[in-house]
Design a protein around this nucleic acid. Structure first.
Length: 271
DNA sequence: AAAACATTGCGTCAGAGATT
DNA sequence: AATCTCTGACGCAATGTTTT
């Protein structure tokens, strides 16, 4: 399904088609295999025996407007035929529900296998792990944290995922760093869940790079979940539209029949 | 049965828009 | 202004379906 109101990625779409370009430093034209990046110096990888990487400055997209979120669109569909709205509160727990079968997740950037373990957060801020027995690999696991704290706000009923490894000291570690992190109760931190608590101030280049790696892992983790959530909402949105189409088609059919009957009645009275 | 093609879902990146 | 969220796009892998 495409939305004509957005030009998102138009130039990329064009660029993705295989094409031949002439590069001054090369005697032969080359076949463009893929273009990564759109409006900054882009990387073009060439096909053929002499694979090369070329920097190309691409023209900035002229019109860039993001379409409204599916949640917004659905909630705007307040007409009677709109079937169901996306519930914001239920969204936060979907990625766990929908992907519960996805117990072992391969993090492609690291090759590390993560495991999902049900966890409940208790008021003290500690966590309870009810390991389901499935063996974790490489000591790293993904927690699904459900806030079971009745004393905190009832709005924080969602579940949050955090990836961790538990050290012999009982502390929790996340990939890409040897720093210890305290797992905070969901609700005190939005989605982030992981809070840096120990260790000396970042000073050495190694620590800085570890910090950067940790931030990257965290960002990827969040984005992974966001993508799952987005796909789920998109599916729901499409289903909603399909339902809407079905309802409108029915209405249309009924109205046509009604019009036909009225016409016949009118003709009889005229005649 | 094997090959070719289609579909589906995932992780990642980029970037617009929202939030802090 | 910095950070976060959301979503289109891409490539990849797994799976399903059709064709040879």
């Amino acid at each position: 399904m495409t939305d004509p109101s957005t030009n998102h990625g138009n130039d990329l779409e064009n660029a993705q088609s295989i094409s031949v370009v002439q590069v001054p430093s090369l005697s032969q034209p080359i076949q463009v295999q893929s273009v990564i990046q759109s409006n900054q110096p882009s990387v073009i990888q060439t096909a053929g025996p002499n694979v090369q990487t070329i920097q190309v400055v691409r023209k900035r997209r002229e019109i860039l407007s993001r379409r409204p979120s599916y949640r917004k669109i659905l909630n705007d569909l307040s007409s009677p035929v709109a079937v169901g709205k996306i519930d914001e509160e239920s969204n936060s727990s979907q990625s766990q529900d929908g992907d519960s079968s996805d117990v072992a997740t391969n993090l492609s950037s690291t090759g590390i296998q993560y495991q999902q373990v049900p966890v409940s957060v208790v008021p003290s801020g500690t966590i309870q792990i009810s390991n389901d027995g499935t063996a974790g690999t490489q000591g790293l696991q993904t927690l699904t944290m459900t806030n079971a704290n009745p004393s905190t706000t009832s709005a924080t009923t969602g579940a949050t995922i955090v990836q961790y490894a538990q050290g012999p000291d009982g502390q929790f570690y996340i990939p890409g760093t040897v720093q210890a992190y305290q797992i905070a109760a969901s609700g005190t931190l939005p989605q982030g869940v992981v809070m840096h608590t120990t260790g000396s101030p970042m000073s050495s280049p190694q620590q800085l790079s570890e910090e950067a790696a940790r931030k990257r892992e965290l960002r990827l983790l969040k984005n992974r979940d966001a993508a799952k959530e987005c796909r789920r909402k998109k599916k729901e949105y499409v289903k909603c539209l399909e339902n809407r189409v079905a309802v409108l088609e029915n209405q249309n059919k009924t109205l046509i029949e009604e019009l036909k009957a009225l016409k016949e009645l009118y003709c009889q009275q005229e005649g």
